[in-house]
Design a binder for these strands. Sequence first.
DNA 1: AACAATATGTCAAACGAATAACATAGAAGA
DNA 2: TCTTCTATGTTATTCGTTTGACATATTGTT
Lengths: 326, 326
Amino acid sequence: MGVKLTDVAKKAGVSATTVSRVINNYGYLSQKTIDKVHKAMEELNYQPNSMARSLQGKSTQLIGLIFPTVSHPFFGELVSKMETKLFEKGYKTILCDSANNKEKERDYLKMLAANKVDGIIAGAHNLGIPEYENVELPIISFDRHLAERIPIVSSDSYQGGRLATEHLYQRGGRRIAILTGTNESDSPTNQRLEGYLSVVKEHQLEPMVYHFPLEHSPFLKATEIRQILSKEGIDSVFCTDDLTAILVINTARELGLEIPGNLKVIGYDGTEFVQNYHPQLSTVLQPIDQFVDLLIDLLMKRINNPDIELDNLYQLPVKFVQGQTS
Amino acid sequence: MGVKLTDVAKKAGVSATTVSRVINNYGYLSQKTIDKVHKAMEELNYQPNSMARSLQGKSTQLIGLIFPTVSHPFFGELVSKMETKLFEKGYKTILCDSANNKEKERDYLKMLAANKVDGIIAGAHNLGIPEYENVELPIISFDRHLAERIPIVSSDSYQGGRLATEHLYQRGGRRIAILTGTNESDSPTNQRLEGYLSVVKEHQLEPMVYHFPLEHSPFLKATEIRQILSKEGIDSVFCTDDLTAILVINTARELGLEIPGNLKVIGYDGTEFVQNYHPQLSTVLQPIDQFVDLLIDLLMKRINNPDIELDNLYQLPVKFVQGQTS
DNA sequence: AACAATATGTCAAACGAATAACATAGAAGA
DNA sequence: TCTTCTATGTTATTCGTTTGACATATTGTT
């Protein structure tokens, strides 16, 4: 069906081996032949068959990205930037939206192995997938413990939790609540909670912890937030993600609460999206660009040398961003 | 390196052909053998090498998705849903963030051909890429004319423009501005503008058209919006996307303008994100789920029968969503 | 018992490209 | 002129899987 190497050879009037030599740049070649072959390739719009190449032993230049969903601005930005950087390096991206579905994530792992990807960057939120232990592919994890020997890139969530909470305290907050995800011991969200608790304890405040399961729809979350805000005498809220913070702000407005007068709100993530479209929100900024650089650099190292020793954990610093909601 | 078919054969105590027969389900097979082989495959954690399979003639089950960027909520949701649906159908997704970069889009097209994808869904915003004319792969386009014979799935942008503008008029708007993208004759954004112009003309209002190049950063856009809102005596703004509408609302708030009292605002897109986190925004809802279903259904048709005749244009209806900003 | 249907095996040729081994020819240098 | 590069060609093998052709058992049916 498609144009193949032998067609190029015929067109250029050289042997198939010579074409292969040009493509893979080995052996002796005259500039004249190289030009002839390139011309023929262009004229025929020839693309070497990736399947055949990698079957022969060449790498596929494919990378699998396993993340919950690109419909979330945080992961959308992360994935978009990774894809861009990977493409610049000559890699193609297979997108795997794990959608908080264990089965799907397992299937993805199999699929990626079958497709002989060169490596995987995984930042899904499913726990308890023992398959990661057995994957011999280079893997780097974002923000999750997946298995022994798989390095984790994350930010200093504990410090982030402390930063946010301490800031609320300095601003006069004395009844500071935290809205966070489900209580999973090794999740970074939990580290944010730990940071919050440590500051609350230091100042001898009453901890007020509200867990929001990830599966809950924003609508359901908003309902719960409404109850929390109208019942309890809360003066500050630390949300462990920006989207929840936006819900809190919307709800507070509904309830006629002045921000930051009656209620101070801090989010977490600081995506470009939030900085552009919700610049008023105080938040803790995660260094997305640095995540991307580090994740890819580490993966490249593992790909080029599978046995290289890497640290277990790379923790990048976070930054508090002052808006007008606190 | 990896486990291969012959290893499975050895383990199961059958011939390689029999294993292949089990995998591809042809010829005569006893249940006993089938079970034996499956057991061996599981024990060895065997995955057929996709490269070898598709080299042999089997389809790759790969689909390329070319869109501007998943960091934008609209495309993030669209891509996320397509990926999910494709995975359910046994396809893997190669993500191509074209980033409004013609060169990159061209490269992607080559790359997807080299990787022998089964089909492409393209919704990038670059014009003038003649390469699309020559691609023999099944392609379906989202919202853009790419080439002859490539069906376009879109929504009724003209009607959407009319809906929004007419609504603003009914609400008392008499000086209605439109904030839209660059003036590209065959873009759907332009159809929204056409719809706006037709209503403005019907009511003999003065058209006020502001073009915002896509490349402009949100910050720059906000600056321009500030100028527009403070200078001209505008009482209503129709934005051809929701994010711009959010910028307008933010700016109006800054300027102390009451919404919808002093200024009415309508957006366009109505992503789940906006509906959840900006429920107050009046907007024109694009049917993302229907886009996804139709795009994929059409692509499957083309894949299963490359010569099937499809319409040039599939236009889905839009819906006005009343919020509190108009 | 004879014949068909079922179940498996052996063998070989693809798929498209990479590459090693070897041959050959011209050009350059001693 | 003889050697050594340099430049190309020929040929065959390999990658892992699919599949067709053909052979050979083992069943089941009448």
